[in-house]
Nucleic acid binder design. Structure first.
Lengths: 221, 221
DNA sequence: GATACCATTTTGGGATACCAAGCTGGTATC
DNA sequence: GATACCAGCTTGGTATCCCAAAATGGTATC
């Protein structure tokens, strides 16, 4: 793998994994030495991560994008539009066997599954569901939206009950999709996204003090 | 303005203006000498344009993205999702006075208006309409989609009648939006996008021979 | 005449050198 | 003691150099 992709990948993982906190300043020279690469691949990585919304320019320098509550609310509206459109498209397709693969993915999580795996599968559910539509643009839109939400979802205080509810909603969406019931599937997906947004925003707003204590920048709605 | 933005902007304009044809090979060194910049800003520009879908990698090198009929059809579905969502959102807002600004924009085009102005306004109509929603993500999605469509719309063989019909549809969409009639507005916008896609794809498919004669790469649906 | 092979050139990826702008810390002045 | 100012350092932006790999073109062989 080229250094460029390597730096980009590693830096993205550090940001998404909160090893570098939201709001932290980044210098090209620090990244350079941290990953043993020169500035050329570092810049390429930063430019890419900028388009993903994970880093931004702060005057002359670079900053890891803060968690932005207003943005989270807007993303929920955006997600609803593209995910529902993708799901309706999928329901209209003859071959919806991909639903079973996603169902199996959900089933792979049980009480022994580490937290980070739940986190990943919870995002991949939406991404893979969008992929089934066969529309590259809807798929990318969902993937990018989930990437932007990723860090906030880490910060969310997840209780078992909330996770169980989310999984139940996921299964219900899949069931309706398998039957090709677009209306029902769309209704449940919309409700899931809105509910998910509410839980997320509430959780983050309540814990803002704690997050700031960890050095994480959280911008209000 | 920094060279970086300058190279990016100029190169984008050359690509969107078909001064560099779809499918043409690009070398960093050519761009470098063409714009009198060094390779660093050239690379930054290429990376950005890549995320916009205007250039792509061709093995080791760079290529101006060909016109892709399959992609155009997928974009139409994507547009319908995000534009309709934005429009419904706008209809739910109390202040929809922005509609009047867009209407004025439409009215600024008459029979004396140069073709390129019609082209620009035809795209800006959709972009500005999405902006009214206030949702940054829906807005960006529409803007990016229109950017990708831009070249194809140039190539479309536009007859006066088609333009007049499009403008009439635009006005009808605005009228419904002004009244806050989300259902009517959404219905008309959907129909407009689908019709626009059909005209575009048909036109391009019919003229593929002519386009290839101009050295433009057109990938089939 | 076609084809396999090798030398040369070209290309993008990476590294490094240099610069101007902005920030920092300290000092001198009032 | 407060403040204005300046030197030095840090930083991102740019230019240039180097390299490995891929494309190219010519040649020798069959």
């Amino acid at each position: 793998m080229s250094q460029m992709q390597s730096v980009e990948k590693q830096l993205r993982e550090m940001i998404l994994g909160l090893e570098i906190g939201p709001g932290e300043k980044l210098t090209e020279r620090w990244i350079e030495s941290r990953f043993g690469a020169s500035r050329t691949p570092v810049r390429a990585a930063l430019l890419r991560l900028e388009t993903e919304g994970l880093v931004g320019r702060d005057g002359r320098g670079w900053t890891v994008s803060p968690i932005n509550l207003a943005e989270l609310e807007q993303i929920a509206v955006y997600r609803e539009a593209v995910e529902v459109a993708a799901l309706r498209l999928t329901c209209s397709l003859a071959d919806r066997s991909g639903v079973d693969v996603i169902e199996a993915m959900l089933e792979s999580c049980d009480s022994n599954t580490p937290r980070e795996e739940w986190h990943r599968v919870g995002m991949d559910f939406h991404i893979e569901l969008a992929r089934l539509s066969g529309n590259e643009f809807l798929f990318r839109a969902v993937r990018d939206a989930m990437t932007r939400l990723s860090r906030a979802r880490w910060l969310e205080v997840r209780d078992e009950a909330a996770l169980a509810r989310a999984w139940a909603e996921h299964r219900a969406i899949l069931a309706a999709t398998r039957l090709g019931d677009a209306e029902e599937a769309a209704r449940r997906l919309s409700a899931h996204i809105v509910g998910s947004r509410d839980r997320l925003v509430t959780s983050l707003a309540n814990d803002r003090r704690g997050l700031r204590a960890r050095g994480f920048a959280v911008v209000a709605a």
